[in-house]
Nucleic acid binder design. Structure first.
Lengths: 197, 197
DNA sequence: TCCTGTGATGAACATAGTGTTCGGAAATGC
DNA sequence: GCATTTCCGAACACTATGTTCATCACAGGA
C-alpha cells in the first residue's frame, strides 16, 4: 500500500516549504505571506518552489492534507469508543474543539477572522465531508425525510464553523468541553426535528 | 437629517465606480477584478479612484451599504406585519431568501463559493448584526440562559449563511419559501433548546 | 566506488498590478 | 461670471508573480 518512495530531496523540499508556510501563517496570516517569504524562510530556490507547487494556494492545500488526516483519525477514535447513540451523534464536535484548543494559534490564523478565504473555503469543504460521512453512518433515516440531507449537512457545517471561528478568535472564554456542550445543545434538537419532518 | 449634498460630480463618480464594480463582480468574481478594470469600465481616471476610495476593498464595503439598507428595510417590514410570535421569530430569514432569489446572480458571485473572502466576511458581519438585534427584541429571555447569547447568534449566522451559500450556488433546486421552511425547521428547535438550558 | 539521472539553484526576464504625484483642464454651484 | 472643487492622465516607484535555462550537486542503484 505504500507509495514508491519519492527522492529524498523531494521530501525534504516539500517538507521545508510546508513548514515555512505554516510558520509564516502563524506570524502574518495567510494573505500577507508571499512566495518570496516562503522560499526565503525555507531556504529554497525560487524555481524549486514552482517545480513542486503551482502557487501559494496549491502549497496550502497540500499542507492541509496533514490536518485532514489528523481530523479523520480523531473522528475514527471517537466513533470507535462505543458510547450511547445520543453521545456518538455529532461525534466530530468534541475532538475538533479539542484539537483547536491544542492548536489555538494555528486555528486563529487559519479559520479566524484574519485567515484567508481559501483556508476557510477548504476548511468548510473538509468539515462538510466529515459531517456528511458521519450523518450517513449514524442517521441513515435522514434520507427519507422531507428536508434534503445535504441541507442538514450544510446547516450543521456552517453553524459549527461559525462557532469554532468565534471561539478561536478569542471572543469567548470557554473550554473545549463547554463549546462542545453548546454546539450539541443547539444542534441535536435540530437533528431530531429533521428526522420528524 | 439630510446630509449637506455633495458635489454632483462626486455623486456621479462614486456611482459610476460602484456600478462598475458590481458589473465586474458578476462577470469575473470579486477576486479577479482589478482596479484597472474598474476605472476602465467606469471611464474614470486612475487618480480619481484613489481620491475616493483607499482600495478595491474600500469600494466594495461602501457598495455593500446599499445592500445593508435594503435588508434592514426588509426586516423592518417583516417585523411590522404582526403575525404570531412563532412566525415572527427568525423573521429575517424569509425576506433574505427572497431577496437572494431576486438577485440570484449577484448572490452567487458574492456569497457563493466563487465569491471573495472579504465579501463573505462582510456579509457574515452584516447578518450577525441583523440576527443579534432580532434576538434581543424577540427573545429577551435568552440573556438568562446558560448558553451565551452571542454563541446562539454565531450559530444561527453560520447555519443560515451556509444554507444560503449552498442554495445560491445552485446546488439545490428549491424555492425561497422552501429554503425558509428548512431553516426554520432546523433553527427553531435549537432556539427553544437554548431557552430551556 | 563509480555513474547516471533527477532534482535544486539563482539570476534574468516578462508581465501585471498597486498606489502616489502633480500641473493643467473642466465642471459645479453660488 | 468666477472662485472652488473635482477630474484627468501620464509618469513613476514598488512589489509580486511565474518562467526559463545553463549549471551544479546529490541520491541511490550497479
Amino acid at each position: 500500500m505504500t507509495e514508491r518512495k519519492p527522492d529524498r530531496r523531494v521530501q525534504r523540499t516539500r517538507q521545508l516549504l510546508t513548514g515555512a508556510l505554516l510558520q509564516l501563517i502563524l506570524e502574518k496570516g495567510y494573505e500577507d505571506v508571499s512566495v518570496q517569504d516562503i522560499i526565503d524562510r525555507a531556504n529554497v530556490g525560487r524555481s524549486t518552489f514552482y517545480a513542486h507547487f503551482a502557487d501559494k494556494e496549491d502549497l496550502l492545500i497540500a499542507g492541509m492534507e496533514h490536518l485532514e488526516r489528523e481530523l479523520v483519525e480523531s473522528q475514527r477514535h471517537a466513533l470507535a469508543s462505543g458510547r450511547s447513540p445520543e453521545e456518538r451523534a455529532l461525534g466530530f464536535s468534541r475532538p475538533l474543539f479539542e484539537h483547536a484548543a491544542g492548536h489555538r494559534d494555528l486555528y486563529r490564523s487559519m479559520v479566524g477572522t484574519r485567515g484567508g478565504a481559501i483556508v476557510q473555503k477548504e476548511f468548510h469543504r473538509l468539515l462538510s465531508t466529515l459531517i456528511r460521512n458521519e450523518l450517513k453512518e449514524q442517521v441513515p433515516r435522514l434520507r427519507e425525510t422531507a428536508i434534503p440531507s445535504e441541507a442538514v449537512v450544510q446547516y450543521l457545517t456552517g453553524a459549527f464553523l461559525s462557532l469554532l471561528t468565534w471561539w478561536a478568535d478569542g471572543k469567548a472564554r470557554m473550554t473545549a468541553t463547554q463549546m462542545d456542550d453548546v454546539f450539541r445543545a443547539l444542534a441535536l434538537p435540530a437533528m431530531k426535528a429533521a428526522l420528524r419532518a
